[in-house]
């Protein structure tokens, strides 16, 4: 299916409802993405007002989540959607849950960033966090792009990047254990860094979930808990 197909219903109001729903999800995604990049920039460039701003956006994100949820319930009740419309509603219902969780993780990161700012900074100036953060923001950005365009090639590419996130996670984890063993005074800071890394890794997982929903939306294939090679093979078969 393609995005153009969305608006060809005989009922013009149904078209409007689905179109509005889709743009609300993109709006919610955009907010979450901004929240996340603010939180990450707070780690490398300390800003005391950051946490307030991120928390305010979180309220807006939660509101959107409830609104989209309600709209989906209403469409399910009144339109009894089928086929691609049904898959769109299911995808949206699941996607907003993941987006909301990403928002929560962003808030956690902002809180830790505020704490890190009050302490002596690490020699690395948290370069490793910035790198991983950029990787994860890129994943989220492309996920939203893939949703906006129903682009499964991009979705698969994002799925692939989750491996790199997992590897980075492992490597920062090991590095911090070394720091803690060498100098116990760094333990508090190292633990905070680990919390951030853990949140970033979770965000990568949420982005990955959304990409899997997008593949379901477009091809009707459930690719959760499937190896990436198998996913690619299935998609090739679906496109053929």
């Amino acid at each position: 299916m393609s995005t153009e197909g969305l608006t060809h219903h005989i009922w013009s109001r149904y078209n409007e409802e689905l179109e509005r729903l889709r743009s609300s999800v993109l709006e919610m995604g955009g907010l979450v993405e901004r929240q996340l990049s603010q939180a990450i920039s707070g780690i490398t460039e300390p800003d005391v007002r950051l946490i307030v701003r991120v928390a305010q956006e979180e309220l807006h994100v939660n509101q959107l989540e409830r609104m989209i949820d309600e709209d989906c319930s209403r469409i399910l009740a009144t339109r009894a959607p089928t086929a691609s419309d049904l898959r769109l509603i299911i995808t949206i219902l699941k996607t907003i849950t993941d987006l909301e969780r990403i928002g929560d993780e962003g808030e956690k990161i902002a809180a830790i960033a505020a704490r890190l700012a009050t302490r002596e900074r690490a020699q690395s100036r948290y370069r490793e966090l910035r790198n991983l953060g950029e990787l994860v923001i890129g994943m989220l950005h492309d996920t939203l792009d893939a949703f906006a365009r129903f682009d499964t090639t991009l979705a698969v590419e994002v799925l692939r990047r989750d491996r790199t996130v997992d590897e980075e996670y492992e490597s920062i984890h090991r590095q911090n254990i070394t720091f803690m063993m060498e100098d116990p005074r760094t333990i508090r800071r190292a633990l905070d860094v680990m919390w951030v890394v853990r949140s970033l890794e979770r965000i990568g997982d949420h982005a990955k979930n959304i990409c899997e929903y997008i593949i379901y939306l477009v091809h009707g294939k459930d690719v959760r808990h499937t190896r990436i090679e198998d996913i690619e093979r299935e998609l090739q078969a679906a496109r053929a």
Binding site: M1, H8, H9, I10, W11, P81, T82, A83, S84, D85
Partner: peptide
């Protein structure tokens, strides 16, 4: 064609 019919599209 099936998709268009069951989802109410022209």
């Amino acid at each position: 064609a099936t998709e268009d019919y069951i989802t109410g599209r022209y």
